[in-house]
């Protein structure tokens, strides 16, 4: 049970970072932390006590394997996370070039 609580705490750490940090790059890092806490919950969903890695060996039958589907889901979600993070980084670097700062308080063209 404590593992689930720890990954939830990690989620909250990420959320705290997104809300309080002023630096664009730190916001991106906090988002990644949140993402990975959710991946951990997803992997834990498929875990079975004393289960083996889900590589079916025809020679030894009757083994208990962990659920491979959440692992596949997490792998796909990591790919998506890679795309989002790189997109955010690209935008952050472009913003730096325009404003010469990473401080989010300086970005105030859009209000209301």
């Amino acid at each position: 049970m404590s593992v689930y609580i720890l990954s939830f705490v990690l989620f909250l750490v990420g959320l705290y970072g997104v809300i309080t940090r002023r630096n664009l790059i730190k916001i991106v890092i906090s988002l990644s932390i949140m993402e990975f806490s959710i991946f951990m919950i997803l992997v834990l969903v498929g875990y079975i006590d004393n289960g083996l890695a889900p590589i079916v060996d025809p020679a030894s039958g009757g083994q208990i394997y962990v659920d491979p589907l959440p692992q596949a889901m997490v792998l796909t979600a990591i790919v998506i996370g890679l795309a989002t993070t790189s997109m955010l980084m690209a935008i952050a670097i472009r913003l730096y070039r325009k404003y010469k700062t990473f401080d989010i308080r300086e970005l105030k063209n859009l209000r209301g």
Binding site: V18, L24, M87, L88, I91, L107
Partner: peptide, 18 residues
């Protein structure tokens, strides 16, 4: 890739990612 476009996109991405 103007100032407003990039800023809007960043906001959109953070909320969309959430």
């Amino acid at each position: 890739v103007g100032k407003t476009e990039l800023e809007a996109s960043f906001k959109y991405q953070v909320l969309g990612g959430l």
